[in-house]
């Protein structure tokens, strides 16, 4: 098995790991770095459960190789809360019932975070369009939509 040494900065912390070239980014984050908040759902880039940010852009980490991310900055759900304070998106998902079983939640929250970073006051249609690739099989979409809009509102007011 061919391996390669790579460096990743994950949630601000630099890691050096040796990975098989076949390692996907999601597997590297979960099994090599032990950050299991991101999960693999479909494994083909469709469902959004493995959404994280790579150099600030949201990515399907299940169809990206860890070796391709060498040198990149990555943000996962574990890095959102700061000093024991939840991110406004996380807080809104709790306050407005943005999740049910929780499988899709870290991906939903990271996608919502990426949206609000880029567009601080998205319209309902903009949220729907952006979040189209994050599936919730409990089908709690109205609550997710509400949570994201409320999070944007709270951040704008802060």
């Amino acid at each position: 098995m061919i391996k390669k040494r790579i460096a990743l900065t994950v949630n601000g912390q630099r890691h050096e790991v040796e990975v098989p070239t076949t390692r996907t980014l999601i597997d590297c984050i979960r099994y090599d770095l032990g950050l299991t908040g991101s999960v693999e759902g479909c494994g083909v880039g469709v469902c959004g459960a493995c959404t994280m940010l790579l150099n600030g852009k949201m990515i399907s980490s299940c169809i990206y190789l860890a070796v391709m991310a060498d040198g990149a900055e990555i943000n996962t759900i574990e890095g959102l809360a700061k000093d024991g304070q939840l991110d406004p998106v996380q807080q809104a998902f709790i306050d407005y019932g943005g999740f049910q079983c929780g499988i899709c939640t870290s991906g939903q929250i990271m996608a919502a975070r990426a949206l609000i970073d880029e567009n601080p006051r998205p319209t309902v249609d903009q949220v729907k369009d952006w979040m189209m690739g994050n599936l919730c099989r409990c089908t709690g979409y109205y609550k997710i939509l509400e949570s994201i809009l409320k999070a944007a509102e709270a951040e704008a007011a802060a």
Binding site: G45, G48, K57, M58, I59, A111, A114, G133
Partner: peptide, 9 residues
């Protein structure tokens, strides 16, 4: 094309 996540890369 697909979703923002795919279009980003």
């Amino acid at each position: 094309v697909a979703t923002v996540r795919i279009r980003n890369f």
